[in-house]
Nucleic acid binder design. Structure first.
Lengths: 223, 223
DNA sequence: GCTGGACCTTGCCCCTAGGGCAAGGTTTGA
DNA sequence: TCAAACCTTGCCCTAGGGGCAAGGTCCAGC
């Protein structure tokens, strides 16, 4: 007949958690001794460890309660599903780690070599720092979302920036940031940009978020 | 100049979450348009993706805020630490999956390998599930109260169970659970058990609660 | 011009899985 | 014997939002 502290220590939880499970109706309230202390049996210890095992697997306590009342087949099916979830979670964790690593690289201002080269080219063309900053931000964003797409698109940009027409268009867009919104030159620039874009082959986009982002970039071009 | 809904969709979060980050001071409040709507820029999108990346890695929002204000070296050190945590989490996940699998396999976990081996031996001897369950419960309890005593005693049991005489006595006790209380065979079994016990060397008991428990086990033998 | 649906705003309470602390009573080991 | 370490209930607090209310706004179609 162990106390709540011993039970908790055995299962590696706090006494608070044990009381919480009582309140939730997950763990049966044991009888009290003469001083009002809860006195637990091995049954409780087993139940508690089961609760913890499931809870650590990310199963909500309400679901744990249901599972305890479920039939053997239902329980086993649930366990299988829970394990599938865990596997998915592991995969997610792996991807998160990749993104974290990129975050470190991105904040170092160490965009990929290709992006850095592209930004250098822009600087050479006399593009303003403000524009280069925007460009860099967008590339960091694309890289964080989809490195594969980023590689594809930056290669395209590096190719494009050798085209004198694109260079001129780009420099004009930079200047256009200072034009008043109703400036008639905007329309001409948009037409020129669209005509130039129409000549370029379309690139595939794997990640829909990137499509969104590129649309945003285009909007910037058309605004 | 995107709205909160577009920003949220881009980062894969809800508008509520975005507002939450504003409230926490994590994400800068953007300027409002004439109707009071928040209008975001690419900067915000980048910051939001950073926030999500860190948050998904399990970094508390308060810590994310600190990190944004930290120096580059501090940030990189933190990222390294965060990745270590992720790695540890992945390892934990692996262990949780193992335990979940065991949960499905049956309930011979929650006990040490020695106890599991002992229970397996009992099963091999044809001891009933009911008896094995009782045995398991007692061992879980003993382990929770005093692991040192448990290790000592289970080693003794593992030794004893190789003795054909003890095997026979154990199997008879199992059967005795079904005998009526006034069955004359009880007396004979008790005598046999006591005689056998007398031949075994005494084991020390460190924790008085364990002595209690073992007494309870003995009582079961004598009942 | 009007209307409906999809946006946006703030504010409030709700959830999970407990943690912290208070203010008392009990048990235990030296 | 006496302090430390338990136990009890009760209350409020936390993160990271979700849901809903009660409005205001924007846009597309008729």
């Amino acid at each position: 007949m162990i106390t709540i502290g011993q039970l908790a220590a055995f299962a590696g939880v706090t006494t608070k958690a044990v009381r919480h499970y009582h309140q939730r109706g997950l763990l049966e309230e044991p009888p009290r001794d003469s001083s009002g202390y809860r006195r637990y049996t091995a049954r409780h210890a087993i139940d508690l460890v089961k609760i913890r095992t499931l809870a650590e697997a990310g199963v909500p306590l309400a679901r744990v309660k249901e599972l305890f009342a479920a039939s053997r087949e239902q329980f086993e099916a649930a366990i299988t599903e829970i394990d599938d979830n865990l596997q998915r979670k592991a995969e997610e964790l792996r991807r998160t780690r990749e993104r974290i690593a990129q975050l470190q690289a991105g904040d170092r201002l160490f965009v990929s070599a290709d992006v850095a080269a592209f930004l250098d080219r822009l600087r050479d063309l006399g593009v303003s720092d403000r524009m280069i900053q925007m460009e860099r931000d967008v590339w960091i964003l694309i890289q964080s979302v989809s490195p594969a797409d980023a590689a594809l698109w930056i290669a395209d940009k590096l190719d494009a920036i050798n085209d004198p027409e694109f260079q001129a268009i780009y420099v004009d867009h930079d200047a256009a940031l200072d034009w008043p919104p109703d400036d008639p030159r905007h329309t001409g620039l948009v037409t020129r940009s669209q005509r130039w874009l129409a000549k370029r082959p379309d690139l595939p986009v794997r990640n829909p978020s990137v499509a969104h982002l590129l649309t945003a970039v285009d909007l910037r071009f058309q605004q």
